[in-house]
Write a protein that binds this DNA or RNA. Structure first.
Lengths: 105, 105
DNA sequence: CCTTGTCAAGTAGCTTTCTACATAGGGTAG
DNA sequence: CTACCCTATGTAGAAAGCTACTTGACAAGG
C-alpha cells in the first residue's frame, strides 16, 4: 500500500468523520446511521492500514462521566493524503460531513 | 417484504439518485463515483424488490445520439416509501443528492 | 484496416458491509 | 432483585459491494 490505498465509499465516509472530529466509534455510528458491525471492523482496517491511530480513554474519565471507556481515533498523515484522494473520487463526500476548515469558510 | 425493506447505505444512495433524476446506470456511476460492479447489481436488486422499474430506451433515439441505448429507471410508490424511511435512518442522505423539491427551496 | 477511445451495460470472484446478537457497567422502574 | 434501557465496543455468518474484466456499437486517427 505504498501510496494511495483506495477506499470504499463507507470507509471514506468514516475517515472523513474522524477527520471532522467524530473521534470514537459510537459517535460515528450516530452521525452516519451506519451499524456497529460496519463501523468497528472498518475502523480496525483503517488502523491496520495506518490511516488512523487509536488509544483508550483513561478509565477515571469514563468513571467520572458514568459510561464505558471510549476508544479514541485520530487521522494520520497517510490518512489525510488518502482522504484527499477520496474526496476527488467521491465528490459528494465533502458535502457530507463538514470539517472545521470548511465550516469557517 | 410487506412494508419497509431495509436498505443499505449504498442502495439508499442509488435510490435517492434515481429519485433525484439520475435515471440510468452510467449517470449514477458518474455522479456517485461508485463503480459499475456496484451500481448495476444494486439496481437489479432494487428492481427485483419493486422499488424501481426499468425500460429500455428506443433504439432510434440512441442511434440519433450516436451512443448505446440506455436502460431508464424510475422510482415506484413502494420505492418512495422506502426512501422516506431511509432518509430517517441515514440523516446524511438528504444532503447528498438534492431532489427537485429541495432544489426549488 | 486496425488500434484506440467513448458510452453503456454487465459478470466472476474476492472483500467489505450488514443483520443480529453478545458483553459489560451503570441507571431506573416495579 | 429482576427486568429493562443507555453507552460503548465487539463478533459470526449472510448479503452486498468492489476490482478487474468483458461485450458491443460507433467514432477518430494513423
Amino acid at each position: 500500500m505504498a501510496s494511495e490505498a483506495k477506499l470504499s465509499h463507507t470507509a471514506a465516509m468514516i475517515l472523513q468523520a474522524i477527520h471532522a472530529g467524530f473521534v470514537y466509534g459510537f459517535s460515528i455510528m450516530e452521525m452516519t446511521g451506519l451499524p456497529s458491525g460496519t463501523v468497528y471492523p472498518a475502523m480496525r482496517r483503517l488502523e491496520r492500514d495506518e490511516l488512523i491511530r487509536s488509544h483508550w480513554e483513561n478509565q477515571a474519565i469514563a468513571d467520572a462521566d458514568q459510561r464505558p471507556p471510549r476508544k479514541y481515533y485520530k487521522i494520520t498523515a497517510a490518512g489525510r493524503t488518502t482522504l484527499e484522494a477520496s474526496r476527488k473520487r467521491y465528490p459528494l463526500l465533502e458535502r457530507l460531513i463538514p470539517t472545521e476548515e470548511a465550516k469557517s469558510v
